[in-house]
């Protein structure tokens, strides 16, 4: 951000005190027009059939358009750089929603009910939000528990295998034999053996998370530069110090690769477990909606699920950025 760096100089500070020299956010103006146009089409063109709260949808679009318009008009005085950078995306989204509205609700070019119109999704959110919220809560609870158990156990066993020859001798064959088995293969057994479907879900998610975390923690610990140990040893380090302060921090980049892989795997197992056995959560909501041929509900739930998964990945990225801020050239999420 070269402009940000230059702003620190004296002359530019004086400029920003005068506070009138900022450029207008033209892209915001274009986005405002696009959203208002989409609102007008949605409201003015009659739907092909009864699809849902079309008026409210148009209202939402209009509100977005008006907000963008207001921000464009005041952009000389109040700059919101992070929002302003998303300008082209805001235009594209308006076009996307407008087109979707046209081909589904207005022109009926996409076969219903398999393709839902935007207002139908809005209707689901308005009518069924308590159940959706509850499903998200159930899914999160199950996922976080299973993931935490898997990550902690995987990390500990990875460090143990990487550090101790004896543990490696016994664990390695087990890991090679059982690890590659997809966690979902345990599904029938888990629901049969474990006391509740919830514990079975936790077990499966922990399994899916634990394998990659174990392997990558192990490989991280095993590939620590031997000179790091020599340095610590000449400085009088104990065995405990070598594990906690040398091996583990040096292995963390690799551990995080495992954590990311484990998170991806845990999403898949979560959905399958909820579709098959656990009687709550977004996976259950999806199969329930399918049972009623409520396709709008499915789309609505898919969007919520995408937000949830993306949010969790972001959380993990933030955690990594904080813990591994010493690494250079980190990928920004």
């Amino acid at each position: 951000m070269p402009t940000g760096a230059i702003q620190a100089t004296g002359e530019d500070v004086a400029d920003s005190v005068r506070a009138t020299r900022r450029p207008i956010w033209w892209c915001g103006g274009v986005a405002a027009v696009a959203w208002l146009a989409a609102a007008a089409v949605t409201n003015g063109w009659p739907d092909d059939g009864d699809l849902g709260p079309t008026g409210r949808l148009a209202g939402c679009m209009a509100v977005i358009g008006l907000l963008l318009l207001a921000m464009t008009l005041t952009s000389r005085y109040f700059a919101l750089p992070r929002l302003f950078r998303t300008g082209p995306w805001l235009v594209a989204l308006a076009l996307l929603f407008g087109t979707w509205e046209l081909v589904s609700a207005k022109l009926n070019l996409l076969p219903r009910p398999f393709f839902a119109a935007p207002q139908s999704l809005l209707e689901v959110y308005i009518d069924d939000w308590p159940r959706l919220i509850e499903s998200v809560a159930h899914s999160l609870m199950l996922l976080v528990t299973g993931y935490a158990v898997g990550a902690v156990l995987g990390f500990i066993s990875g460090v143990a295998i990487g550090w101790s020859r004896a543990v490696g001798y016994w664990m390695h064959p087990l890991l090679r034999f059982v690890g590659p088995l997809p966690a979902t293969a345990w599904l029938p057994l888990a629901f049969f053996v474990l006391p509740s479907s919830w514990t079975a879900g936790v077990f499966l998610i922990a399994l899916a998370t634990g394998f990659p975390v174990t392997v990558l923690t192990w490989s991280g610990v095993a590939s620590v530069n031997a000179a790091y140990y020599d340095v610590a040893r000449t400085l009088g380090a104990s065995q405990r110090f070598l594990i906690l302060r040398v091996a583990i921090p040096a292995a963390m980049p690799s551990v995080f690769v495992g954590l990311f892989m484990g998170l991806g795997g845990s999403f898949a197992v979560l959905v399958v477990a909820e579709m098959v056995g656990v009687k709550a959560g977004l996976g259950w909501y999806l199969s329930w909606a399918q049972g009623w041929a409520a396709y709008s509900n499915m789309y609505a739930a898919l969007i919520v699920m995408a937000l949830m998964c993306s949010g969790l990945i972001s959380v993990l990225f933030h955690l990594r950025d904080r813990l591994l801020n010493w690494q250079k050239g980190l990928l920004r999420w």
Binding site: A227, D230, V231, T234, W326, Q327
Partner: peptide, 12 residues
């Protein structure tokens, strides 16, 4: 104390 050819500072 041994000082190595590489500084072997801990990058973290």
């Amino acid at each position: 104390i041994l000082v190595f050819q590489d500084p072997t500072l801990y990058p973290w």
